[in-house]
Design a protein around this nucleic acid. Structure first.
Lengths: 192, 192
DNA sequence: TTGCTTGTCTAGCGATGCTAGGATTCGAGT
DNA sequence: ACTCGAATCCTAGCATCGCTAGACAAGCAA
């Protein structure tokens, strides 16, 4: 038994290595640079090893996305719990979200732009994704306003943040006025 | 001279054919299916002909994007000019925008998701892109509210719509409540 | 020691974006 | 009318991609 356990442990370590390396490579040179060959070389194994852990590149992206979702939830909760009052909490949430997107563009892409083969907004949605949404809901629900479903409000607020994040990073919006846009968004959307 | 003119005309026709075919193929089977080989086969020319018109696949995407930007501007203006009152205009704009995104997913991707090699939010931004933004600004500027820069407001509103469009199409948001989200967004963001 | 499972690698397939270089066509000049 | 040269187009190929088959080696069980 002990032998099998050791092997399983080593396999798990290698799997984490694959995900971490893919993420690192993606953040350094973009997801296009994350080829199976380069990834295999970096972990010092041959290509087929990747396929003994994941069905393919898509699943690797999905694994990075899950990792990122958990981190984002932590970042959002840390920011909101350190803020006083509903408005400050919402501002902190928005900043934390956009900050995360800016600092981890590859992870953000894995989460919301690329196809990681994950189910969203469904029952079989992986727990980290649900929890990341829950982290948003916790602070946004209290400023949804009367008669507005908290979940719906959170979706709209989230979509707005997502729009700002993606358009800014894709060069469609200039980063200079980013702070002003956040202020405007919070002032208008949140009911205090 | 006449001969050269005829050739130039024929070249222009073929260039439009390339763009139209790429768009058609992308709408039918997604941009991944738009390979240079398939595209060349559909227009009944060899691959290198594509490269005598465009630097590469990226520029073809850019051409589709420009075409789409012009159409989107038309669609938005048609919707807003048929609506009475500021609020109705904004609602009409939002619906027209999301409708365009839903009905022309490949074109929308070319515009805002993919890299078409175009400059955005700069001086050398192609005219169709500027004009599409202007079309949004025309109706959104009047509901920006006092002391809020119309351009900034338009950017925020646009980003929100973009977020809704992309998250919905990527399966991150369920399409059922789409109408409610638009209502909420307009009610909160627009100052009437 | 022998046999078998498990793990890993080499080699290769079809497809991708893109390009070099040869062939063909066709108008211009005598 | 005929030749020459330039423009036009295609065949063939390169490097790279994601992914996989099949050979090989390592290591445990009998």
């Amino acid at each position: 038994m002990s032998v099998q356990e050791r092997k399983a442990r080593e396999r798990a370590v290698r799997e984490r290595l694959i995900v971490a390396t893919a993420r690192e490579l993606a953040e350094q040179q973009g997801w296009d640079a994350v080829t199976t060959r380069r990834l295999a070389e970096r972990i010092e194994y041959s290509q087929p090893v990747l396929y003994s852990h994941f069905r393919g590149k898509r699943e690797i992206i999905g694994a990075v996305a899950l990792e990122g979702a958990a981190e984002m939830a932590v970042a959002v909760r840390a920011a909101t719990s350190a803020a006083d009052g509903p408005r400050e909490r919402v501002v902190a949430l928005a900043r934390a979200y956009l900050d995360f997107a800016e600092r981890n563009p590859a992870v953000y892409d894995a989460l919301f732009q690329l196809d990681g083969g994950l189910a969203y907004a469904q029952e079989d949605t992986p727990e980290p994704l649900k929890d990341a949404f829950a982290a948003l809901l916790e602070s946004l629900g209290e400023v949804a306003g009367d008669g507005v479903h908290p979940g719906l409000f959170t979706e709209v607020f989230w979509a707005s943040l997502h729009g700002l994040a993606t358009l800014t990073r894709a060069g469609r919006l200039l980063p200079e006025d980013a702070a002003q846009r956040v202020e405007l968004l919070v002032d208008r959307l949140a009911v205090l």
